[in-house]
Design a protein around this nucleic acid. Structure first.
Lengths: 202, 202
DNA sequence: TAGATTGTTAATCGATTAACAATC
DNA sequence: TAGATTGTTAATCGATTAACAATC
């Protein structure tokens, strides 16, 4: 699944005039196994032509459809600190079929501010907006300490999926979908891998 | 491996006075299989005592050692836009054994700025600092368009691992370690999962 | 001793790879 | 026809789970 996004980015970077791509060429460019790529593509696409490969634009559409980059899904963000603002201001989500409609922050000084065309509201506005717009996805960019409380509030107001940037374990009912994005742990993992790599070479 | 970080966060949130934890209790709190947790713990720790479980603090230390959260590894950041600044200002990396020493940006207006005690330099300062401090990890928080060029520059100056936030495929020699962090794709995936979940319930 | 827990060995499952047939 | 490519079927591999023995 994650590989599909990699294929897609690769396809997008191919010159405009490229019409056909083969699984073989994708595999060698990206360093995956040939058969692996072929299986992945077979899972999402109608199929390619022997000898020439896949029609590039057709394939792009197929992957996008499969990943749902065409329909639009709304989300709200809680916590308009540095990370929150970065997410709010990032224009790239729309390409991926997701739209952050608004942000909320408990700090009254931030209320009314706008980042990238999106407004920051006080927390008291959250319940009504969530319910009125039937928002299903909440993004948590608050401190470790407030994260649990915020997620409770989100769930009370109909949120079904949480993208959690706080480095903490959230206790949630198990019908709620969570994706924990611990950036520090992610960087630490890269560092660990590097250390192992260097050891191996010795 | 990723699960280890989850265990660790969970352990950290346990009350101070807790002395022993069992793999069983971790498993049920976090929703993993019992045996899975036991195997994971066995891989990093000296072992627990039947009947009482693992010594909490000992276990925390063992996981931290295994993940390398004790040694300190330096990194530099390129791109001091919204996301870059958020990373630069995030104090939490040190807990995970990583330290961002400085940031670089091609925009001369940003040069000299300081975020969270870290300074932003012009790109021309990058080579010397990288080499002098023997930096091995580079973080790319620039646009899609500059990402390839920046990564080339990093590699020329001794960087061995890249944490890439640009939504693009980097073409790199294969002794270089890359971790692509496409946040938009990540959110889109959550949205897709949610849609699937809702379908299933019908 | 009984019970909760650890740790190990074998079985299952899913994802990846290898080998080969089919097609333009 | 020959060759590059797709697509499929069987084999391998690794991670997870199930079953059970060991221990305090």
């Amino acid at each position: 699944m994650k590989r599909l996004t990699v294929y897609l980015t690769y396809l997008q970077e191919l010159p405009e005039e490229t019409v056909y791509v083969s699984a073989t060429s994708i595999a060698s460019a990206l360093g995956f196994g040939e058969v692996l790529v072929r299986k992945d593509l077979a899972a999402v696409s109608a199929g390619g032509k022997p000898r020439v490969g896949y029609c590039k634009n057709r394939l792009k559409k197929d992957i996008e459809n499969f990943l749902g980059y065409n329909r639009i899904d709304n989300a709200i963000l809680v916590g308009a600190g540095r990370l929150g603002s970065a997410l709010l201001g990032y224009g790239g989500f729309s390409e991926y079929g997701v739209n952050i409609v608004a942000a909320f922050d408990k700090n009254p000084e931030l209320a009314g501010a706008a980042v990238g065309g999106k407004t920051v509201f006080g927390m008291e506005r959250l319940p009504r907006l969530c319910r009125r717009m039937k928002i299903k996805i909440g993004i948590i960019a608050v401190t470790r300490e407030s994260a649990q409380q915020v997620s409770n509030l989100l769930i009370e107001n109909g949120i079904l999926a949480i993208w959690n940037f706080a480095p903490t374990h959230l206790n949630l009912p198990d019908n709620i979908l969570v994706h924990n994005e611990n950036l520090a742990a992610s960087l630490a993992l890269l560092s660990k891998k590097l250390v192992e790599e260097l050891k191996k070479e010795k």
